[in-house]
């Protein structure tokens, strides 16, 4: 699952720590999300989309049959 977290975060001049604090997760989680090493849960994806003011499908791009 790809995501635009890093792109949107940089565009809004938000640091990883600030984003982590806003989403109530650790900075390491933000780093892993941005590197594509970790897929967010539906709750976290929702919170992130709300933070950036975009729809979930704009922030997270589903690339077909992942983990199926």
């Amino acid at each position: 699952m790809k995501n635009k977290i890093q792109e949107l975060r940089k565009a809004r001049k938000v640091t990883q720590q600030e984003l982590a604090d806003a989403l109530c997760v650790t900075r390491q989680t933000i780093i892993s999300l941005e590197n594509g090493k970790y897929n967010a849960s539906l709750t976290l994806a929702h919170k992130a989309a709300q933070f950036f003011g975009v729809a979930i499908e704009e922030l997270f791009i589903f690339e077909g049959e992942e983990n199926l």
Binding site: C24, V25, L44
Partner: peptide, 12 residues
């Protein structure tokens, strides 16, 4: 401590 204990990646 709250964030560390509730962080979903940590829990996973």
């Amino acid at each position: 401590a709250y964030i560390r204990s509730t962080d979903e990646r940590n829990l996973n």
